[in-house]
């Protein structure tokens, strides 16, 4: 799958859908997309990894940076990664990324359902 970061609306909130392999070669695209979104200081931002097929440490590091940047911008970040996407979800779980940012099964209005 060709890597792409698409702007999407999730329940009317701004979101970025990350498709393909998020790794050292593509991570800059996510970084610039996130920077563009956070520039507007939205109240919430969803990063959807449902269709992300691969996540390496550089990609995970960018997710961590994104979480910190969002916090600094006053934006509530939510990462969507269902358990069915095991290759990506396992990386997130190993790093315990959910201690920094809510990782949920699917985008929800409440922002609840924080992953384990």
């Amino acid at each position: 799958m060709q890597f792409a970061v698409d702007r999407v609306a999730v329940h009317g909130r701004p979101g970025l859908r990350v498709r393909g392999e998020l790794d050292i070669a593509t991570v800059a695209q996510l970084a610039s997309s996130v920077a563009a979104e956070l520039a507007a200081s939205p109240r919430t931002l969803v990063v959807d990894l449902t269709e992300t097929t691969f996540l390496d440490s550089s990609g995970a590091r960018q997710l961590a940076r994104t979480a910190k940047d969002a916090a600094a911008a006053g934006t509530a970040l939510q990462v969507v990664c269902p358990r069915e996407n095991a290759p990506v979800r396992l990386v997130i779980d190993l790093l315990e990324l959910q201690r920094l940012v809510p990782v949920v099964e699917s985008a929800s209005l409440s922002g609840g359902e924080v992953g384990s």
């Binding site: 995970a60 961590a64 190993l94 790093l95 315990e96 990324l97 201690r99 920094l100």
Partner: peptide, 12 residues
């Protein structure tokens, strides 16, 4: 014996 990646949290 697992904890978060280094650098993720200020204090862990």
């Amino acid at each position: 014996g697992r904890g978060p990646a280094l650098g993720l949290l200020d204090d862990a």
